[in-house]
Design a protein around this nucleic acid. Sequence first.
DNA 1: CCTCTTGCTACATTATACGTAGCAATGCCT
DNA 2: AGGCATTGCTACGTATAATGTAGCAAGAGG
Lengths: 112, 112
Amino acid sequence: MIAIPLPGQPVRGSKSGEPIMAVFDLLGRTWAMGILWTLNKHGPSTFRGLQELCGSVSPTVLNKRLKELREAGLVERSENGYRATAMGEELYSMLVPLGAWSQKWAEVIGQK
Amino acid sequence: MIAIPLPGQPVRGSKSGEPIMAVFDLLGRTWAMGILWTLNKHGPSTFRGLQELCGSVSPTVLNKRLKELREAGLVERSENGYRATAMGEELYSMLVPLGAWSQKWAEVIGQK
DNA sequence: CCTCTTGCTACATTATACGTAGCAATGCCT
DNA sequence: AGGCATTGCTACGTATAATGTAGCAAGAGG
């Protein structure tokens, strides 16, 4: 198994070690952005809570993603379950514009 | 093979059909963001040119991603090779802040 | 002790990604 | 026309990742 993507190391998808490529690797795994999105939108959640909020995520993948996100310092465990760290919230805030963009994109694609 | 992720349909990672989930699926595949990033940073590139710029992408994956990105209306073919569409550039502009964030993240992680 | 919830792990199946090889088409150049 | 280089892929075998169902160990509450 390839390691959890961290800056300064070759990652799945790129061998340059550029931080942005580590981010792309980290986020470019099933449910990674979805989990970050959900955690920030709904606040802290338990493992099972996240499973329900995400709807169709298998516990295997959820567990892997949570481990990776925790190791990357974006998610941590609290008394209320998993929650985003300050870094995680910052990253989330950069994903937020994607939400609005995706609506627009949906319209454009739909018109084809 | 699951279809190319489009809004309004269940996608890999989510069955809700929300556009944002389609975006997460589309971008959450190896090299998808990397290609978008490279195309916008270096301008239009040929297939082989992209292969070199990306460094370690296999033609199989590059071809798949390009097909998906074209179908999603983010990339198109021009006389100078592949290039980002207006929509693609817009999406790219939302990824740009990630570049700066990733530098900061690299420092924080590195200090551990 | 029994039951419920939580946070996982096991395992078998399917889907993706990787990497090397190479082919068909086009554009030179002689 | 013949030969060579470049481009945009496709084939194919292997390796890695994701899915989905089942279920177990630990803790809380009665």
